[in-house]
């Protein structure tokens, strides 16, 4: 089965600056794919090429098997694109807004608008004028707009930026619902916690180059295997060349500790603990940075108990995706 999105050897140049350099990855059907990278990494440029809004200098992008350069009209019918910080007409009601876009997409406004209002839970406020809506509601309305023509692929550029926690949770749930409807979703963000809950696969872009791409679990196990010095597996992960995957030899992680009594005593004890390279105190907590596998945490705890420090709680500071991102882009952040 052909992937829903296929990006191959994509290059783009603005003036003398290569904003994209040989970017290649696939997005499988029905996936929620996280497109990650710091600001200026080239995420939006890649997305604009996918959305037929930009002709790349070189390379090819296919959406649902159709080349975006060869048949942009057809691609536009199969994608729903929500740009970063997209504007919204303010002096129309929710229903009028959606009816306008339904007419523009040439879909029957009455039935489709009702269906989309129900799906996005905007039916209650369908007569509300947009200018009076909250940011979360506006973002939901934007998502409703891109669903009007029933696209197979949704391309969402920073959909949860500027949203409050409740709106973010609602947006996440809505994305999971859409995945349940069989949509393929490419989600761009630089907020990793936002992506880690919903994404099945990711691609990390840095300085216009793909650093790593593939299912999160696969990338994590691959990194873990490398750390353990296991033989190299497949030369590529989801299209990113092995050379591009910058895996540190000694990965660093941080653990947050809550201890009984003064944290300074724990800090002093930790300075001699095996694998610990840095200790910090902040807000009554002790943060220990260590090198090596996760099993080092057990040694740290044992070391503290042996030193007579009571431990109330131990927490790994980052989730899997954050760790992958940090390890893959270490030293390359802009």
């Amino acid at each position: 089965m052909t992937p829903a999105i296929r990006v191959r050897h994509l290059w783009h140049r603005f003036g003398a600056f290569d904003v994209l350099r040989d970017v290649t990855f696939d997005v499988g059907r029905g996936e929620i794919f996280g497109f990650i990278g710091p600001n200026g990494a080239g995420k939006t440029t890649t997305i604009r090429v996918m959305a037929t809004l930009l002709e790349p200098t070189a390379g090819r992008v296919e959406i649902d098997g159709v080349d975006v350069m060869r048949d942009p009209e057809s691609v536009r019918r199969s994608i729903g694109y929500m740009p970063d910080h997209a504007g919204i007409y303010e002096r129309v009601t929710v229903r009028e807004y959606l009816e306008f876009f339904a007419e523009a997409y040439r879909v029957p406004p009455a039935s489709v608008v009702d269906a989309v209002l129900e799906l996005t839970d905007l039916g209650r406020i369908s007569d509300k004028v947009v200018v009076t809506m909250s940011k979360g509601q506006k973002q939901r309305l934007q998502l409703a707009r891109v669903l009007l023509h029933d696209p197979k692929v949704l391309i969402l550029d920073e959909p949860a930026s500027d949203l409050d926690p409740r709106a973010r949770i609602e947006m996440r749930n809505l994305l999971l619902d859409l995945r349940g409807l069989g949509k393929t979703i490419l989600l761009s963000s630089h907020i990793l916690t936002e992506l880690s809950d919903v994404c099945t696969s990711v691609a990390i872009l840095e300085r216009g180059q793909l650093v790593v791409a593939g299912p999160i679990a696969e990338i994590a196990s691959r990194f873990e295997a490398r750390r353990a010095g296991a033989p190299q597996g497949a030369p590529e992960i989801g299209g990113a060349s092995a050379a591009a995957v910058a895996v540190p030899q000694a990965p660093r992680r941080r653990v947050k500790l809550r201890v009984v009594g003064a944290p300074e005593a724990a800090s002093a004890a930790l300075s001699t603990a095996p694998g610990v390279v840095e200790v910090e105190l902040a807000g009554g907590y002790v943060y220990a940075t260590y090198e090596g596998p996760e099993s080092v945490v057990a040694h740290i705890v044992a070391h503290l108990v042996h030193a007579g420090v009571g431990i109330l709680g131990v927490e790994q500071e980052r989730n899997e995706l954050e760790r992958i991102f940090l390890e893959a882009t270490r030293g390359e952040m802009q």
Partner: peptide
């Protein structure tokens, strides 16, 4: 300016 342009273009109008 209001960043509504791309949404209109992508409707295929």
């Amino acid at each position: 300016e209001g960043r509504t342009w791309e949404a209109v273009v992508l409707t295929g109008m």
